[in-house]
Amino acid sequence: MVSITKDIDKEEVIAQFWPQISRAASGYESRPALSDELAQEMALSVWRSLEGFNDQCSLNTYIYRVIHNTAIDHIRRHSRISEDELDEATLCESPTPEKSALQAQRQHQLIIAVNKLPLSLRQVMLLKLEDLNNIEMSEVLGISEANVGVRLHRAKEQLSTLLAGMN
């Protein structure tokens, strides 16, 4: 049993996983204010669930599982209404230097396209974007590797179509 109980250790874990947490939040929630709130909820859930961590899987898998279930909880509570209008607003934001503006614009497009995927496909795509392999994804989501493969294939197809539609 290697549960993490000390606050200082928990802070360390949160700091280590914060980039993944904030990216997952923007992948699940395109509205900026709610995305920040979701990221905070995810950090809080990770903090609270660290004491329950034991050797059943790697810390990485465990934290991704917590993050993605918190996102589902968020979706449960904030049913999404007329997101398309907000998406358009987000797309118009662009920083000044041309190159970074283009990069930021493409990143925004990717975030919005990921947000438009159905939940089951979005989950695998977000994990893929975090560079998890199929075995890790199946552990995080509690589904078979074959199912992960099928979902990932569909997610890529849909994402390509969505991104092509944006260009």
Partner: peptide, 26 residues
């Protein structure tokens, strides 16, 4: 965009400031 190898592009998105855990717990 090659979706098989776009994880570095995804992971280079702008980072948000980390929240203060004590405030969140409160």
């Amino acid at each position: 965009m090659n979706l098989n190898n776009c994880h570095p592009f995804w992971q280079s998105t702008e980072k948000k400031p980390q929240p203060h855990m004590d405030q969140l717990l409160k």
